[in-house]
Design a protein around this nucleic acid. Structure first.
Length: 501
RNA sequence: GGCGGCAUGGCCAAGUGGUAAGGCAGAGGAUUGCAAAUCCUUUACCCCCAGUUCGAAUCUGGGUGCCGCCUCCA
């Protein structure tokens, strides 16, 4: 089987066939950089990161372009609030975006154009639309005429005539009054007094929201690309308008495959700024949730379905990740049993380069095939993860025994079969962007008045003595006291007690 | 109102015609003075009704509930 993707444009699942054999061009709608990213963004970009990794792993040469919208009313609003400039707000949030994505192990896009740096392409595209009669000028604004474009509404399944009736009673703002059709949208907005503006044939102003993506796609990737990505909330009007602009200008199909991810919900409702129910990526990660826990949480659901964000579900993911992480740690090239040295997960290689699957033992080949079948089925990461968990199971137990100093486990860990299983686990986890993490959480507490090693050792010794005299009440008391301070005692064979902070 | 999507065990979530993956939580057992970890075992008539079929969670029709988009939004 080959990769099947559900295409919003055709409302069906289709076999993926690239325009050019072996190559894939992808454009992903990025963020408007007026604020920090929240979990909705995290989900979206984690999903698309997995798509990208899977394509690369499958042997495709992938070109991935993602934009920054750095011209926008909200950015202007922030700048006004702060008494700074649009550039300052954008710059700060772009930096934050890069940092947040890196923490989530999301591969940086090959190119990340910004609206402010794409003005030439934007103006050129608007001029083409004007020349073709698809755009009209009204009071310093330039609008796209949706009625002139046959096929408007094909992505979102909207019927212009019907929508016209429904919209006829809607608010007639100043801007609405200028439009020939309520769905007409601004390609260029004339500057209002005091606003930052850019020069154009239509006077000073700035581009409308949708045009930048059309311009960037064309400039970076060409008239027609393989895959266009974004959140489900962008289907209308953003992507619909993008299609209309691009296709009116070029006469060619903008993208063959349109993929949309489902929303992150809180209490059954979409996470959004306006509802105030959002959690930023960094707030969550800084609260002690590990990046890979978040990744696992996201990947346990299918990317198109809504994903409910709850503390319980996240906790379940955290526990699940703990086990996977332990197995990954054992499988990593770094010496088994060590807590540090996270693997370099930022790179991914095509499977054929990494190793010939036909060399795998039958059982592992079968596991790998199940993983591939799951991913080919419209990126069924949930089913793919099941394969990882199964591969991880024996390694996980072993890792735990190793950590506790089990000598027999150390011998088992060197077995060829387990090492092969570990290598496959590591490879497949990499496709999902999951990489081993150093023990998460546990901020160094000794600095803030925690017990010193010597004090702990003394208590451990006291407990040993208590046990020897069968004073279990006292022994348990010491265990409980230490646990309250985040120190875990582990009794090992031979009366030896180790502790973990 | 228009368009689209979803309803599977305590929770999350796969499965799209042949009697239900996986994760978390729970239960029982082994082990342990206790605990942790580990190992074994174990927990579902798939929202309701009707239909098609030898056979349906899976197809068809109807119903109920929930969500998204139609304004900025990943």
């Amino acid at each position: 089987m080959t990769l099947q993707l559900s295409n919003t444009l055709t409302r069906s699942v289709e076999e993926f066939r690239p325009l050019e054999p072996g190559k894939v061009s992808i454009y992903c709608c990025g963020v408007t950089v007026y604020d920090l990213c929240h979990l909705g963004h995290a989900r979206s970009y984690i999903n698309w990161d997995v798509l990208r990794r899977y394509l690369i792993w499958s042997g495709y040469a992938v070109t991935f372009v993602q934009n920054y919208t750095d011209i926008d009313d909200k950015i202007l609003g922030r700048a006004a609030e702060e008494g700074t400039s649009m550039e300052a707000v954008s710059e700060r949030n772009i930096e934050a975006f890069v940092a947040d994505m890196a923490r989530l192990n999301i591969l940086p896009a090959d190119r990340m154009p910004r609206a402010t740096q794409s003005l030439g392409a934007i103006r050129a595209l608007i001029q083409v639309l004007e020349a073709k009669g698809a755009a009209y000028l009204a009071d310093g604004d330039v609008y796209f005429a949706v009625m002139k474009h046959a096929g408007y509404g094909k992505l979102s399944g909207r019927d212009l005539a019907e929508q016209h009736d429904n919209a006829s009673g809607r608010v007639a703002s100043e801007e609405e009054a200028r439009k020939q059709h309520p769905f007409d949208f601004a390609l260029w907005k004339g500057a209002k007094p005091g606003e930052p503006s850019f020069e154009s044939p239509w006077g000073p102003g700035r581009p409308g929201w949708h045009i930048e993506c059309s311009a960037m796609v064309r400039e970076e990737l060409g008239d027609t690309i393989d895959i266009h990505l974004g959140g489900a909330d962008l289907v209308f009007p953003h992507h619909e308008n993008e299609i209309a602009q691009s296709e009116a200008a070029t006469g060619k199909e903008l993208a063959h495959y349109w993929l949309h991810n489902g929303m992150v919900n809180v209490g059954g409702e979409k996470m959004s700024k306006s509802l105030g129910n959002f959690t930023t990526i960094r707030a969550l990660l800084d609260s002690g949730v590990s990046p890979m826990t978040l990744r696992l949480f996201v990947l346990q659901a299918h990317y198109r379905k809504p994903l409910d964000f709850t503390a319980e579900a996240l906790e379940a993911a955290a526990t699940g990740w703990k086990g996977l992480n332990a197995a990954l740690g054992l499988a990593s090239p770094a010496a088994p049993g060590t807590t540090g040295a996270s693997t370099e997960g930022a790179s991914i290689t095509p499977a054929l380069v990494a190793g010939d699957p036909s060399d795998l033992p039958k059982e592992l080949a079968e596991a790998r095939a199940r993983f591939v079948a799951a991913m080919d089925d419209d990126l069924n990461t949930s089913a793919a993860l099941a394969v990882l968990f199964e591969l991880a199971k024996p390694l996980r137990g072993l890792a735990n025994r190793l950590e506790r100093g089990d000598a027999a486990a150390a011998v088992e860990a060197t077995s060829a079969a387990l090492r092969g299983q570990g290598a496959l686990l590591l490879e497949l986890a990499g496709v999902l962007g999951l990489k081993q993490e150093a023990l998460a959480g546990a901020p160094p507490q000794e600095a803030q008045g925690g017990l010193s090693d010597a004090a702990i050792d003394a208590l451990v010794e006291e407990r040993r003595a208590a046990k020897a005299s069968r004073d279990f009440a006292r022994a348990d008391q010491i265990r409980a006291d230490l646990k309250a301070q985040g120190i875990e005692l582990v009794d090992k064979p031979g009366g030896v007690t180790e502790w973990l902070r």
